[in-house]
Protein backbone atom coordinates (compact mmCIF):
# COMPACT_ATOMS: atom_id res chain seq x y z
CA UNK A 1 0.00 0.00 0.00
CA UNK A 2 1.31 3.42 -0.86
CA UNK A 3 1.29 5.63 2.20
CA UNK A 4 0.96 9.32 1.33
CA UNK A 5 3.76 11.31 2.84
CA UNK A 6 3.88 14.88 3.88
CA UNK A 7 5.43 17.48 1.58
CA UNK A 8 7.86 19.51 3.61
CA UNK A 9 9.84 21.52 1.12
CA UNK A 10 11.65 23.88 3.46
CA UNK A 11 12.29 26.22 0.58
CA UNK A 12 9.56 28.37 -0.89
CA UNK A 13 9.62 31.33 -3.25
CA UNK A 14 11.19 34.48 -1.92
CA UNK A 15 9.09 36.32 0.62
CA UNK A 16 7.27 33.27 1.96
CA UNK A 17 10.09 31.79 4.03
CA UNK A 18 13.53 32.65 5.17
CA UNK A 19 16.42 31.31 3.08
CA UNK A 20 17.90 28.10 4.38
CA UNK A 21 21.27 29.87 4.24
CA UNK A 22 22.51 33.37 3.85
CA UNK A 23 23.71 34.89 0.60
CA UNK A 24 22.19 36.25 -2.59
CA UNK A 25 20.09 33.88 -4.65
CA UNK A 26 21.54 33.16 -8.05
CA UNK A 27 18.97 30.68 -9.25
CA UNK A 28 15.41 30.96 -8.10
CA UNK A 29 13.19 28.21 -9.47
CA UNK A 30 9.54 29.09 -8.96
CA UNK A 31 6.71 26.64 -9.30
CA UNK A 32 8.26 25.05 -12.37
CA UNK A 33 6.35 22.39 -14.32
CA UNK A 34 7.67 20.52 -17.34
CA UNK A 35 6.05 17.98 -19.65
CA UNK A 36 7.55 15.50 -22.09
CA UNK A 37 5.17 14.68 -24.88
CA UNK A 38 2.27 15.69 -22.64
CA UNK A 39 3.54 13.57 -19.71
CA UNK A 40 4.25 15.55 -16.58
CA UNK A 41 7.92 15.29 -15.52
CA UNK A 42 8.33 18.22 -13.13
CA UNK A 43 5.39 19.42 -11.06
CA UNK A 44 5.59 22.78 -9.35
CA UNK A 45 9.26 22.55 -8.42
CA UNK A 46 10.68 25.23 -6.13
CA UNK A 47 14.40 25.50 -5.57
CA UNK A 48 17.18 28.00 -5.29
CA UNK A 49 20.95 28.19 -5.53
CA UNK A 50 23.12 30.67 -3.69
CA UNK A 51 26.13 32.55 -4.96
CA UNK A 52 29.49 30.82 -4.55
CA UNK A 53 27.89 27.68 -3.25
CA UNK A 54 27.35 24.20 -4.58
CA UNK A 55 23.77 22.97 -4.82
CA UNK A 56 23.39 19.21 -5.13
CA UNK A 57 20.20 17.85 -6.66
CA UNK A 58 19.58 14.33 -5.38
CA UNK A 59 16.78 11.83 -5.66
CA UNK A 60 15.92 8.48 -7.18
CA UNK A 61 16.16 7.72 -10.90
CA UNK A 62 13.38 9.29 -12.92
CA UNK A 63 12.66 11.94 -10.32
CA UNK A 64 13.42 14.76 -12.80
CA UNK A 65 16.88 15.81 -11.60
CA UNK A 66 18.46 16.09 -15.06
CA UNK A 67 15.30 17.68 -16.46
CA UNK A 68 15.43 20.37 -13.78
CA UNK A 69 19.10 20.97 -14.52
CA UNK A 70 18.41 21.27 -18.24
CA UNK A 71 15.70 23.84 -17.63
CA UNK A 72 18.27 25.95 -15.80
CA UNK A 73 20.18 26.83 -18.97
CA UNK A 74 17.40 26.24 -21.47
CA UNK A 75 18.95 23.16 -23.07
CA UNK A 76 15.71 21.33 -22.29
CA UNK A 77 14.08 22.80 -25.35
CA UNK A 78 16.64 21.07 -27.57
CA UNK A 79 14.65 17.92 -26.85
CA UNK A 80 11.60 17.54 -29.05
CA UNK A 81 8.29 17.50 -27.18
CA UNK A 82 9.79 18.87 -23.94
CA UNK A 83 7.96 21.95 -22.69
CA UNK A 84 7.96 24.22 -19.66
CA UNK A 85 4.25 24.50 -18.99
CA UNK A 86 4.26 26.84 -15.99
CA UNK A 87 6.54 28.65 -13.59
CA UNK A 88 9.84 30.32 -14.30
CA UNK A 89 13.47 30.41 -13.26
CA UNK A 90 15.11 33.64 -12.21
CA UNK A 91 18.83 33.89 -12.72
CA UNK A 92 20.39 36.86 -10.93
CA UNK A 93 16.94 38.38 -10.92
CA UNK A 94 16.33 37.96 -14.66
CA UNK A 95 13.61 35.67 -15.97
CA UNK A 96 15.10 32.79 -17.98
CA UNK A 97 11.75 32.00 -19.59
CA UNK A 98 10.60 35.55 -20.11
CA UNK A 99 9.59 36.89 -23.50
CA UNK A 100 12.56 38.09 -25.45
CA UNK A 101 15.11 36.03 -23.50
CA UNK A 102 17.58 34.59 -26.00
CA UNK A 103 18.18 30.91 -25.10
CA UNK A 104 21.63 31.05 -26.71
CA UNK A 105 22.69 33.88 -24.43
CA UNK A 106 21.34 31.94 -21.44
CA UNK A 107 23.44 28.92 -22.47
CA UNK A 108 26.50 31.09 -22.88
CA UNK A 109 26.08 32.52 -19.36
CA UNK A 110 25.14 29.20 -17.72
CA UNK A 111 27.26 26.35 -19.06
CA UNK A 112 26.53 22.67 -18.68
CA UNK A 113 28.90 19.76 -18.09
CA UNK A 114 27.32 16.46 -19.12
CA UNK A 115 27.38 12.99 -17.65
CA UNK A 116 29.30 11.45 -20.53
CA UNK A 117 32.25 13.55 -21.67
CA UNK A 118 32.45 13.86 -25.45
CA UNK A 119 35.25 15.40 -27.48
CA UNK A 120 34.39 17.65 -30.39
CA UNK A 121 36.08 16.44 -33.58
CA UNK A 122 39.03 18.79 -33.31
CA UNK A 123 42.26 19.26 -31.38
CA UNK A 124 42.50 19.65 -27.60
CA UNK A 125 43.26 23.36 -27.97
CA UNK A 126 40.41 23.94 -30.42
CA UNK A 127 38.02 22.14 -28.07
CA UNK A 128 38.80 24.73 -25.40
CA UNK A 129 38.28 27.56 -27.90
CA UNK A 130 35.00 26.19 -29.31
CA UNK A 131 32.72 28.68 -27.57
CA UNK A 132 35.25 31.53 -27.49
CA UNK A 133 35.61 31.52 -31.28
CA UNK A 134 31.85 31.89 -31.64
CA UNK A 135 31.19 34.43 -28.90
CA UNK A 136 34.47 36.26 -29.59
CA UNK A 137 34.94 36.82 -25.86
CA UNK A 138 38.72 37.10 -26.15
CA UNK A 139 38.77 40.01 -23.63
CA UNK A 140 42.23 41.03 -24.80
CA UNK A 141 43.66 37.55 -24.34
CA UNK A 142 45.36 35.54 -27.05
CA UNK A 143 44.10 32.07 -27.86
CA UNK A 144 47.20 30.52 -26.26
CA UNK A 145 46.51 32.42 -23.03
CA UNK A 146 42.90 31.23 -22.95
CA UNK A 147 43.86 27.62 -23.62
CA UNK A 148 46.55 27.72 -20.96
CA UNK A 149 44.47 29.42 -18.29
CA UNK A 150 41.43 27.18 -18.80
CA UNK A 151 43.44 23.97 -18.89
CA UNK A 152 45.38 25.17 -15.87
CA UNK A 153 42.17 25.76 -13.91
CA UNK A 154 41.07 22.18 -14.49
CA UNK A 155 44.55 20.78 -13.79
CA UNK A 156 45.04 19.49 -17.31
CA UNK A 157 47.72 21.85 -18.59
CA UNK A 158 50.76 19.86 -17.45
CA UNK A 159 49.28 16.66 -18.86
CA UNK A 160 48.52 17.98 -22.34
CA UNK A 161 50.70 21.06 -22.89
CA UNK A 162 52.94 19.18 -25.36
CA UNK A 163 50.08 17.80 -27.41
CA UNK A 164 47.56 20.60 -27.71
CA UNK A 165 47.14 19.92 -31.41
CA UNK A 166 46.43 16.23 -30.89
CA UNK A 167 42.82 15.07 -31.33
CA UNK A 168 40.87 15.48 -28.10
CA UNK A 169 39.43 12.01 -28.60
CA UNK A 170 42.81 10.57 -27.57
CA UNK A 171 42.37 11.73 -23.97
CA UNK A 172 41.25 9.37 -21.22
CA UNK A 173 37.66 9.69 -19.97
CA UNK A 174 38.77 11.50 -16.82
CA UNK A 175 40.91 13.93 -18.80
CA UNK A 176 38.08 14.40 -21.28
CA UNK A 177 35.66 15.36 -18.52
CA UNK A 178 38.15 17.98 -17.29
CA UNK A 179 38.50 19.19 -20.88
CA UNK A 180 34.70 19.57 -21.04
CA UNK A 181 34.86 21.69 -17.87
CA UNK A 182 37.69 23.76 -19.40
CA UNK A 183 35.59 24.19 -22.55
CA UNK A 184 32.75 25.52 -20.41
CA UNK A 185 35.06 27.79 -18.39
CA UNK A 186 36.47 29.31 -21.58
CA UNK A 187 33.01 30.75 -22.20
CA UNK A 188 33.40 32.89 -19.05
CA UNK A 189 30.15 31.51 -17.59
CA UNK A 190 28.34 33.01 -14.62
CA UNK A 191 27.26 29.58 -13.34
CA UNK A 192 28.05 25.96 -14.07
CA UNK A 193 25.58 23.08 -14.17
CA UNK A 194 26.88 19.52 -13.88
CA UNK A 195 24.83 16.46 -14.72
CA UNK A 196 26.36 13.51 -12.88
CA UNK A 197 29.84 14.52 -14.03
CA UNK A 198 31.58 11.64 -12.24
CA UNK A 199 29.27 8.75 -13.04
CA UNK A 200 31.50 7.53 -15.91
CA UNK A 201 34.76 8.06 -13.99
CA UNK A 202 36.99 5.96 -11.76
CA UNK A 203 37.54 6.98 -8.10
CA UNK A 204 40.79 8.85 -8.85
CA UNK A 205 39.25 10.92 -11.65
CA UNK A 206 36.15 11.47 -9.49
CA UNK A 207 38.33 12.86 -6.70
CA UNK A 208 39.98 15.26 -9.17
CA UNK A 209 36.62 16.53 -10.42
CA UNK A 210 35.42 17.01 -6.83
CA UNK A 211 38.59 18.97 -6.01
CA UNK A 212 37.96 21.03 -9.10
CA UNK A 213 34.36 21.77 -8.07
CA UNK A 214 35.53 22.93 -4.66
CA UNK A 215 38.23 25.06 -6.30
CA UNK A 216 35.72 26.69 -8.66
CA UNK A 217 33.19 27.38 -5.91
CA UNK A 218 34.66 30.71 -4.76
CA UNK A 219 34.22 32.11 -8.26
CA UNK A 220 31.03 30.48 -9.52
CA UNK A 221 27.78 29.02 -8.27
CA UNK A 222 27.62 25.33 -9.21
CA UNK A 223 24.57 23.09 -9.46
CA UNK A 224 25.31 19.39 -9.61
CA UNK A 225 23.03 16.42 -10.16
CA UNK A 226 24.33 13.31 -8.46
CA UNK A 227 23.20 9.84 -7.56
CA UNK A 228 26.01 9.57 -5.10
CA UNK A 229 24.81 10.75 -1.69
CA UNK A 230 28.32 10.62 -0.26
CA UNK A 231 29.49 12.89 -3.05
CA UNK A 232 26.64 15.33 -2.44
CA UNK A 233 27.63 15.41 1.21
CA UNK A 234 31.32 15.94 0.42
CA UNK A 235 31.02 18.80 -2.03
CA UNK A 236 27.70 20.60 -1.67
CA UNK A 237 26.54 23.39 0.62
CA UNK A 238 22.86 23.00 -0.24
CA UNK A 239 20.93 19.90 -1.21
CA UNK A 240 17.63 19.61 -2.98
CA UNK A 241 15.70 16.36 -2.88
CA UNK A 242 13.48 15.60 -5.84
CA UNK A 243 10.95 12.79 -5.88
CA UNK A 244 8.62 11.97 -8.75
CA UNK A 245 8.97 15.41 -10.30
CA UNK A 246 8.41 17.29 -7.05
CA UNK A 247 10.82 19.12 -4.80
CA UNK A 248 10.34 17.48 -1.41
CA UNK A 249 12.98 19.29 0.58
CA UNK A 250 15.80 21.77 0.20
CA UNK A 251 18.12 22.74 3.00
CA UNK A 252 21.78 23.02 3.86
CA UNK A 253 23.49 19.73 3.10
CA UNK A 254 24.45 19.34 6.74
CA UNK A 255 20.84 19.67 7.93
CA UNK A 256 19.28 17.58 5.18
CA UNK A 257 21.66 14.69 5.83
CA UNK A 258 21.37 14.82 9.60
CA UNK A 259 17.82 16.03 10.25
CA UNK A 260 15.67 15.59 7.14
CA UNK A 261 12.13 16.77 7.72
CA UNK A 262 10.45 14.76 4.98
CA UNK A 263 9.84 11.08 5.56
CA UNK A 264 10.72 10.04 2.03
CA UNK A 265 13.96 12.01 2.15
CA UNK A 266 14.79 10.33 5.46
CA UNK A 267 14.12 6.89 3.97
CA UNK A 268 16.28 7.67 0.94
CA UNK A 269 19.16 9.04 2.98
CA UNK A 270 19.16 6.26 5.52
CA UNK A 271 19.06 3.69 2.71
CA UNK A 272 15.63 2.29 3.56
CA UNK A 273 14.68 2.84 -0.08
CA UNK A 274 17.06 2.92 -3.03
Amino acid sequence: MIVPMEMTCSYAPEGDHEDPADGPRIFDVRDLSVTFNGRSVLRGVNAMALDRQVLAIVGPSGSGKSTLLRTMNRTLELTLDARVTSGDIHFKGERLYGNGTDPRLVRKRICMVHQKPVAFPMSIGENVLFGVRFHKNWNGRTKDEIIRSCLDRVGLWNEVKDRLSDPASRLSVGQLQRLCIARALANDPEAILMDEPCSALDPVSTARIEELILAMKPQLPIVIVTHNLAQARRISDQSLFLYDGQSLEQDTTERIFTHPKNGRVRDFITGKVG
Partner: peptide
Amino acid sequence: AQDLREMAYGLGVTQLYVMRRVLFRK
Protein backbone atom coordinates in the same frame (compact mmCIF):
# COMPACT_ATOMS: atom_id res chain seq x y z
CA ALA B 1 25.50 11.32 -31.36
CA GLN B 2 22.80 13.48 -29.78
CA ASP B 3 25.12 14.08 -26.79
CA LEU B 4 27.54 15.88 -29.04
CA ARG B 5 24.84 18.20 -30.36
CA GLU B 6 23.53 19.01 -26.89
CA MET B 7 27.02 19.65 -25.64
CA ALA B 8 27.74 22.02 -28.51
CA TYR B 9 24.41 23.87 -28.28
CA GLY B 10 24.90 24.01 -24.50
CA LEU B 11 27.75 26.46 -25.08
CA GLY B 12 25.35 28.99 -26.56
CA VAL B 13 26.35 28.67 -30.21
CA THR B 14 24.12 28.73 -33.28
CA GLN B 15 22.90 25.78 -35.30
CA LEU B 16 24.99 26.88 -38.27
CA TYR B 17 28.13 26.92 -36.13
CA VAL B 18 27.41 23.42 -34.81
CA MET B 19 26.73 22.16 -38.33
CA ARG B 20 29.95 23.67 -39.67
CA ARG B 21 32.31 22.77 -36.85
CA VAL B 22 30.89 19.56 -35.42
CA LEU B 23 28.26 17.85 -37.56
CA PHE B 24 30.07 18.01 -40.91
CA ARG B 25 33.29 16.69 -39.41
CA LYS B 26 31.57 13.90 -37.51
